[in-house]
Amino acid sequence: MPNAPVTSDQALLLDHQLCFALYSASLAMTKLYKPLLDELGLTYPQYLALLVLWERDGITVSELGDRLFLDSGTLTPLLKRLEAADLVSRLRDTTDERRVLIRLTAAGRALKNQARRIPGCVLQASHCSVDEARALTRQVKALREQLLA
């Protein structure tokens, strides 16, 4: 049974808002990533898309959208920019022309080697141990799942 809602003015203090803590942490994280990704010529959403493709190449646009929690209207321009940069190619599935497959190009695969240093830089900046970062990631993912349920 959930806890009773807090109704005092204390509940409306900005520093007591979980949403603000997550939002401001997200802004700080994006700010940290920017110079690291600028070196690779990527935006943060492009980096996220490549992370998915480095895990599993040749997925559909809808599978990528599911992994990133993005709709096709947001993904299409992102993928067009990655394609223009020769990092991915988009191909119609020969078995079902409604599906578009995304594949890494040689340049997209090679960029993975340059990106390998980024997680370590982020970990160092966070002053978290690997175990602490993994635990925090699990907590935030569990929160996301609870909110989506």
Rank of each mutant, 00 (worst) to 15 (best):
residue 2 P to L: 10
residue 2 P to I: 15
residue 3 N to G: 10
residue 4 A to Q: 07
residue 4 A to N: 08
residue 5 P to I: 05
residue 5 P to T: 01
residue 5 P to E: 09
residue 8 S to V: 05
residue 9 D to A: 13
residue 10 Q to S: 10
residue 10 Q to R: 10
residue 11 A to E: 02
residue 12 L to R: 15
residue 13 L to W: 14
residue 14 L to I: 09
residue 15 D to M: 15
residue 16 H to L: 05
residue 17 Q to S: 09
residue 17 Q to F: 01
residue 18 L to Y: 05
residue 23 Y to A: 01
residue 24 S to N: 07
residue 25 A to P: 01
residue 25 A to V: 01
residue 27 L to K: 12
residue 30 T to F: 01
residue 32 L to H: 09
residue 33 Y to H: 00
residue 33 Y to Q: 02
residue 34 K to L: 11
residue 36 L to D: 02
residue 36 L to V: 08
residue 37 L to S: 13
residue 38 D to H: 10
residue 38 D to G: 02
residue 44 Y to K: 04
residue 44 Y to G: 03
residue 47 Y to W: 03
residue 47 Y to S: 11
residue 49 A to S: 08
residue 49 A to G: 09
residue 53 L to F: 07
residue 54 W to A: 10
residue 55 E to S: 04
residue 56 R to H: 00
residue 56 R to A: 00
residue 59 I to V: 11
residue 59 I to T: 05
residue 61 V to L: 01
residue 61 V to I: 12
residue 62 S to V: 09
residue 62 S to T: 13
residue 63 E to P: 14
residue 63 E to S: 15
residue 63 E to R: 09
residue 64 L to E: 07
residue 64 L to T: 02
residue 65 G to F: 10
residue 67 R to D: 13
residue 68 L to Q: 06
residue 68 L to V: 04
residue 69 F to L: 12
residue 70 L to G: 00
residue 70 L to P: 10
residue 70 L to S: 07
residue 72 S to M: 06
residue 75 L to W: 00
residue 76 T to S: 11
residue 77 P to G: 01
residue 78 L to Y: 11
residue 78 L to I: 03
residue 79 L to H: 00
residue 79 L to M: 14
residue 79 L to K: 15
residue 80 K to T: 15
residue 80 K to F: 08
residue 80 K to W: 13
residue 81 R to E: 15
residue 81 R to L: 01
residue 82 L to H: 11
residue 82 L to I: 14
residue 84 A to Q: 11
residue 84 A to H: 11
residue 84 A to V: 03
residue 85 A to R: 11
residue 85 A to N: 11
residue 86 D to I: 06
residue 87 L to P: 12
residue 89 S to F: 07
residue 89 S to G: 07
residue 91 L to H: 11
residue 91 L to S: 06
residue 92 R to N: 01
residue 93 D to M: 14
residue 96 D to G: 04
residue 96 D to L: 03
residue 100 V to D: 05
residue 100 V to S: 02
residue 100 V to W: 00
residue 102 I to M: 00
residue 103 R to E: 04
residue 103 R to I: 04
residue 103 R to Q: 08
residue 103 R to P: 00
residue 107 A to P: 02
residue 107 A to G: 03
residue 108 G to K: 02
residue 110 A to P: 11
residue 111 L to R: 04
residue 112 K to M: 14
residue 115 A to E: 09
residue 116 R to E: 03
residue 117 R to H: 13
residue 119 P to D: 15
residue 120 G to P: 00
residue 120 G to I: 05
residue 120 G to T: 03
residue 121 C to H: 04
residue 124 Q to V: 15
residue 124 Q to M: 02
residue 125 A to R: 02
residue 126 S to A: 02
residue 126 S to H: 00
residue 130 V to E: 05
residue 133 A to V: 01
residue 135 A to M: 12
residue 135 A to T: 04
residue 135 A to D: 14
residue 136 L to S: 05
residue 139 Q to M: 10
residue 143 L to K: 12
residue 144 R to W: 13
residue 145 E to L: 07
residue 148 L to W: 14
